[in-house]
Nucleic acid binder design. Structure first.
Length: 278
DNA sequence: ATCACGACCTGGAGGC
DNA sequence: TGCCTCCAGGTCGTGA
């Protein structure tokens, strides 16, 4: 579910929680991503701390915790496919698949994730760059922008398809399966084309397309196909504005050819066979 | 080293 | 109604 625009939407809607003091910590004990359980001891060590800021890198949300007399700490959250980060009343019943709850007085910050592909970890802020999840991430597509020349350089010699290239978080952090199809359609590039075939000019078009697609999605508070909601539980409206994703058989918005669906590396890819020629 | 694939999970949708 | 299969916004370890 959550790609960069969705995670950024969560970050923005979480803003009212900044300044709140963590009064309690709870976790389900159930394993999440890579069968790793939430770090119970480190979550409990957050109690007494204050939410000092909210950052994001790619699809990772970084919640900074300030704690008097303790080095600054960061709660790292990845929503996986079905994860939600919700602010709700402390008294609200706990939804099924709730895995982490930080009590903030009258409210709770809750991590809910049915498929348990999400991640929750706690690290010293000073050491976050060496955290396994963050160490390999490329520049953030929104904060750092997308540099066509950098994309061109990274694509040299690559046999991987453009679809895989755009999804590679070490090249660029934030693009997922929906926006990969959308950006390649926008740039009129075929998903199955080898990355090494990209020209410098095409790399520039791809960079611009990625930025446009992500910004548009963010303007609509993200794409809610099934699970995605913001921190207040509201869905995004970007699903109404998708050009090709999920639109197999529908006319291409540019040339009216029927949109095709193929599977690359086990993931659905949507494209127009007529106007995505390169 | 690079690349494609399967595994990790649950739930919803659709066919029978 | 129930059961079955297929599908899903991500990431990682494996083996070719």
């Amino acid at each position: 579910m959550p790609e960069l625009p969705e995670v950024e939407t969560v970050r923005r809607t979480l803003a009212p929680a900044v300044g709140a003091t963590i009064a309690s910590a709870w976790d389900s004990g159930k394993p999440l991503h890579m069968r790793r359980k939430p770090p119970r001891a480190r979550l409990h060590a957050l109690v007494g701390g204050k939410i000092a800021g909210l950052r994001r890198h790619g699809k990772y949300l970084l919640i900074d915790i300030a704690h008097r007399g303790v080095e600054p700490t960061t709660l790292i959250v990845h929503l996986g496919m079905t994860g939600r980060l919700l602010v709700c009343p402390h008294a609200a019943p706990r939804a099924p698949h709730t895995h982490v709850v930080l009590g903030l007085g009258a409210r709770d910050l809750r991590f809910v994730d049915p498929r348990r592909f999400g991640q929750v970890d706690v690290v010293a802020t000073a050491a976050e760059r060496s955290h396994a999840a963050l160490a390999q991430l490329g520049p953030d597509a929104l904060v750092d922008g997308v540099d066509g020349d950098a994309l061109f350089a990274r694509s040299r010699g690559k046999e991987a398809t453009l679809k895989a290239f755009v999804l590679d978080q070490s090249v660029l952090a934030g693009v997922g399966n929906i926006y990969a199809s959308e950006a390649l359609w926008r740039a009129q590039l075929r998903p199955s084309t080898r990355a090494r075939r990209l020209t410098r000019a095409q790399a520039g078009q791809l960079a611009a397309a990625i930025e446009e697609v992500l910004r548009n999605a963010l303007d609509h508070n993200g794409t809610s196909l099934r699970d995605f909601v913001d921190a207040g539980g509201a869905e995004g409206t970007n699903a109404d504005y998708l050009w090709v994703y999920g639109r197999e058989g529908e006319p291409c918005p540019r040339c009216k050819t029927r949109i095709r669906r193929v599977v690359h590396q086990g993931r659905a890819t949507f494209y127009c066979p007529t106007c995505q020629r390169a």
